[in-house]
Design a binder for these strands. Structure first.
Lengths: 249, 249
DNA sequence: AAAAAAATTGCAAGAATTTGCGGATTTATT
DNA sequence: AATAAATCCGCAAATTCTTGCAATTTTTTT
C-alpha cells in the first residue's frame, strides 16, 4: 500500500470517527506503528489532524480543548463589539440575538444611552440589567439550556410582533452564495424573523465564520446591511459581498 | 479513550453542570480517580476550570460564590428551600416566583427529577439551565432590572395561560388578617395570577415576614395551602393561620 | 540499462508519557 | 476530636515515542 493511500485512509477514518489510534491503524494498514506515527506526524505538520499521545484527533477537537481559542477569540469578539457600539443611538429599538459577541456588546454600551432592547438570551439580559437607562424586553419561551436562550414557537410569535430600528446578529456562517447560515434549524428560523422585524441588519461576524456554510439558510447576503468583522480583509474577499450591497466595517 | 477526549468531556460536563466530581468522572470516564485528578490539575493550570476538594468548578463559579455571601439570611433561605424541595415530584408542572428563596430552591432540586418549571426570574432560569432533566419555560416581558425578573402585561397574559400543579411563592408580607401582601403593585398582580393558575400554593416565608403587612394584597390567607418557614414558631403565632386552613412546615 | 541518489520502511534500544496502586497526608464533616 | 473522604507522593508496569541504522524500494541521472 502506498503512502498516499495510507494517508487517505487515515483522513477518512478521522472524518468518520473524529479520532484514530496508532495501534489500530497499524493493524488496519498492515504496517508498523512507526510508519503510522510517521504518517500522522506528516499529516499533523500539514494541519490535517492534531497529533496526541496514542493517536490523533481532528483539528476541531484540538480547538475545543485548547484555551488559546477562548482567549484569542475574546479579543476578536471585543473588537467587533467596539465597532458595533457606535451604531447604537438614543431612542432606538434594538433586537439582539443570543451570541457571545452580543454579550460583549451588551457590556460596553455607554451608560447614558437610552434605548429599548429586545433579547431572548439570559446572559445578555443579565448584562443589560446593570444598565440604568436601557429598557430591556425579554422574549420568553422554552429554554435551550446549553445556549441559555429561549427558543420555540413563543419566541417566533413574539419576535414577529416587534418593529425594530436595528438588529445585531451573531453569525455562524456567512457566504457570498448561500448568505447567512445556521447549524440549528430553530435558531435559523428565529433569526429570519428577527431580520424581517428590523429596518437595519448588522451581522457581527468573526473572520473565521466568513465563507463558512452551515446547514440552514437564514437570509441571502443582500438582506444584510452591514457586516462587522474583527480584522481588515483583502479586497478580493470583500468585493463579492460588496457587490451584493453589503457594507463592511 | 485518549487524554484529550477526557479533557473535552470534562469541559463539556462543566459547561453543563458548573461543577464536576472526581469520583463521578472516574466512573463516567472509566479511569482511576488519580487520573481524573491529574486531568483536573492540568486543566486548572490552563485556567479552564477551578479545582476544589472533591472536583472542580467553572471559573465563573469561583467568582460567583463570593458575592453569595452578601445575600442576607442565606442560611434561613436554604433551610426553607430544603423543606420545599420535598414537595417536588416527577411529572409536575411548577411555577416559581422570583424570590431569592426560590433561587436557593432551584439550586438544590435533585438532578434526576423530571418536571416543567415556569419562571420569570433570570437568576432562577440560569440556575435551572444546569439541570439536565428539567424543562424550563421562561415567561417574557419587560425587565425589572433590580429584581432581575420580567413584569408587565406580557407576564400577566402568559401566566394566565398556564395550568400548574404547584406554585412556589416568595413572600414579602404575611398576616392572618390581610393575607399575603406585596410592596409592588405589579408584582402583587402577577402573583395573584400565579396562584389562580396553580392547584396548590406553597409560600416560602422567612419568619421575619410573618405578621408583616405590605401595601398591596395578593390573596387572603386561606388561598395558601402550605407555608414553609425557617424555624419552629410558637403555637400561638401559628394557630390563627391554621384555623384558616394553612398548613405549616 | 546501470549506477547513484533519495525515499520508505521496519527494527531495536532507550527515553518519555501515561496510568493505577499502596500508603502517608491533608481536608472536610460531624 | 474522631471519622471518612479526598489528595498527594513515589513507584512500577504498560504503552507510546524518538532516534539511529540498515535493508529495501523508488526515482533520478548518466
Amino acid at each position: 500500500m502506498l503512502k498516499l493511500e495510507r494517508h487517505a485512509f487515515i483522513i477518512k477514518q478521522l472524518k468518520q470517527h473524529r479520532k484514530v489510534l496508532s495501534a489500530k491503524l497499524s493493524d488496519q494498514l498492515q504496517v508498523s506503528e512507526d510508519t503510522v506515527r510517521r504518517d500522522l506526524k506528516e499529516l499533523a505538520s500539514r494541519h490535517l489532524l492534531f497529533k496526541v499521545h496514542g493517536g490523533a484527533l481532528t483539528i476541531e477537537n484540538k480547538i475545543l480543548s485548547f484555551d488559546e481559542r477562548s482567549v484569542a477569540d475574546l479579543d476578536k469578539k471585543r473588537s467587533i463589539a467596539k465597532k458595533a457600539v457606535h451604531l447604537i443611538h438614543d431612542g432606538q429599538v434594538i433586537i439582539m440575538s443570543g451570541s457571545t459577541v452580543n454579550v460583549e456588546l451588551a457590556k460596553i454600551i455607554p451608560s447614558h444611552i437610552r434605548v429599548t432592547i429586545f433579547t431572548y438570551s439570559l446572559p445578555i439580559a443579565i448584562e443589560l440589567s446593570h444598565h440604568e437607562s436601557i429598557e430591556v424586553i425579554f422574549i420568553g419561551g422554552k429554554l435551550n439550556k446549553l445556549a441559555q436562550v429561549t427558543v420555540g414557537i413563543d419566541v417566533v410569535n413574539s419576535v414577529s410582533n416587534i418593529r425594530a430600528d436595528i438588529c445585531f446578529m451573531g453569525v455562524s456562517g456567512m457566504d457570498v452564495v448561500r448568505g447567512m447560515t445556521e447549524p440549528d434549524w430553530e435558531v435559523a428560523h428565529i433569526k429570519k424573523c428577527m431580520i424581517a422585524a428590523s429596518d437595519y441588519v448588522v451581522a457581527l461576524c468573526q473572520s473565521s465564520k466568513l465563507n463558512k456554510i452551515e446547514r440552514y439558510v437564514v437570509v441571502p447576503t443582500q438582506n444584510i446591511d452591514t457586516v462587522i468583522i474583527d480584522e481588515p480583509l483583502e479586497e478580493d474577499v470583500l468585493k463579492p459581498f460588496e457587490e451584493q450591497g453589503v457594507q463592511f466595517v
